[in-house]
Design a protein around this nucleic acid. Structure first.
Lengths: 198, 198, 198, 198
DNA sequence: TATGAATGAGTATTCATTCAT
DNA sequence: TATGAATGAATACTCATTCAT
């Protein structure tokens, strides 16, 4: 019984720990949303979370781990949304668009951390993890295409094109350049899907 | 006569000044190309230009103004390239793609400074300037389309779509995510142009 | 009877306590050997011992006490080695040299903790203890000399000189400055013993 | 004439710069003397010099350069003292002893920075420089010996021994362990010189 | 026009230690 | 007895900017 109590204790402990990790993560997300990537320093995240900077090191190995976790959560959210879109009426592709349209900071974060244009700083390991997550999401869209009768190879290429198109539109929109044209980003995306006959 | 001399002096002075501004700008471009946005500190630019950091303040109001001017130069370069593309064989749209494909740092810079996802720091004035420049570039592409018989409205939308597609593909490529798919970014872009029957 | 049990309990407790103190000390020694003085943080020692940092405070008053205890153990080891040297063929003096030659980290530790050049942080009490231990070691060497017929006063001085010479050579060696000269540290030490006709 | 003024200006500038570098160095020396090596942080040195930490970077490339300069100054002082000793009555060897006896912190600093027992952190280049300086000092002592008729090889070994002996005695003294024996460090050193018949 | 000098605020991370549990 | 959590102070170093000269 004592052992059971200890186990319970351990489980509670674990839950408390997870809860705090999540508190920090939420704070980080707020800072990201408010100040962008450059403002999301460890100090700022700690301040937002009501912690001293040193305290974060108890819950995360460092800044990178916070960033990485944030991004992996984001990709998980995306995956869920795309899944739901596939089973629902909007379709996977449009769900993909809508997710990032509603969470533009997550798109920004993704680009930063995925590392190309701005150098990453992520561990190879975490980078590979994230890659796998993204690949999973795209696989859903690809399957939607092959299910619709599209040859595998073509579906692969089209997924890439879709991804690119979507990302480009969102960047234009959230960069304030979409007004230049007489159509909104979402309308443009639908137009593109139409063009693909998809 | 004294006044004439002063004028001449003034004109010469103005030329010298413009020359120096340009020197600094060229140095900035080299630093950007070499070290990316994060490495392009005012100090680094000054060092590259052979100036002390303080000296740059005689020629530019600050870091952001240098960035902004750099971007406007970049857009001018883009404009030239697209112009040449229209008159040449590749076409304006592909020239657009190729320009940024060859100068990914300038694309990065554009996203940074166009603000939106990340806060600008640009003056309204400079922002408007940049907007006009970009619009000019896109107008060339748009005209190419209307020249080809496309209705104006449709051409406008298609230009936006083309821009978005292009940007998306380049980001994927320079972020290292293009390898996921079985086709390169340029091939994808050509495929897209094909789809547009353009 | 209850009292006896308590005593027993106390004694057992004491043994367990001593055992744990020793575990920690051994861990500390490993860390010292591996990472040197700067790397031997309390955290590192705790990690090596499989404890949390906080736990060490039940067994030691703090970092300095661990250091001090470590040094006193080191002196005990030295004493043993010198004893063995006296009874063996190498002689006490050479055994002294060889001990520190083989455990240079302990020499470093000694200098650190003996304070002087660098502020101590040791309690007077512990400092006195360490002094006594060192004195004991040197007494062995001194006796070796008087046993060999040297007058007491001279033996005392010669012991000091020997100690100094030994320490100096080892520092030169482990500082990488011995290569400057055409002879190794140990050869130099033998040469010195020869000079002393000892 | 204007050029001459500029030159003068330059020279004055240079002098002011050198003066400030020296101010910082003196502050560093005071901190070293008061707080030992571990306390001699860049912040502490800056505070002592009346500067903000950032200001030091204008005069020195970093902490290491300050340390290195300090040590090289120390070796220069030593060299001078040994030179004077050779020409005076005390002799080079005793002058060596006396220098460090009077400036024990410099001995400590030397050991730290020469890097063995505690890892250095100096650049290879500076390390080589310092090595050369030390070698120069020892060469003086060695020449004193060969001038006295000692064969070169023997003089080389004896210089090393002398160095070691001296260092050992000083460490014992400034570590407070010399009182153990009935003779002071200097007397011991003289005794050693006597033994060497030197 | 240019510079040397300087600053205050910022960066991520580590440390010994404390304390409630 | 042990731990998880937390802290305040420290580390070296970089940044954009200012100002007297």
């Amino acid at each position: 019984m004592a052992r059971q109590a200890a186990l319970k204790e351990g489980r509670r402990q674990g839950q408390v720990d997870a809860f705090k990790r999540d508190l920090i993560l939420k704070a980080a997300r707020r800072v990201f949303a408010r100040e962008g990537l450059d403002g999301a320093s460890l100090r700022a995240i700690a301040r937002e979370a009501g912690y001293s900077p040193a305290a974060l090191y108890f819950h995360y190995a460092g800044k990178e781990e916070i960033y990485g976790t944030l991004l992996s959560q984001s990709l998980a959210g995306l995956s869920e949304a795309v899944d739901a879109g596939r089973d629902g009426q909007s379709g996977a592709a449009l769900a993909f668009f809508d997710y990032y349209d509603g969470n533009p900071r997550e798109l920004e974060m993704g680009f930063y951390l995925f590392g190309g244009l701005r150098r990453a700083g992520l561990t190879k390991e975490l980078d590979a993890d994230l890659n796998k997550l993204l690949r999973g999401v795209l696989a859903i869209i690809e399957r939607e295409m092959t299910d619709g009768g599209m040859p595998r190879k073509e579906a692969e290429h089209t997924t890439a094109a879709l991804f690119a198109h979507c990302v480009g539109l969102l960047i234009l929109k959230h960069t304030g350049r979409m007004g230049m044209f007489g159509l909104g980003a979402r309308a443009q995306f639908l137009r593109y899907l139409d063009l693909l006959d998809f």
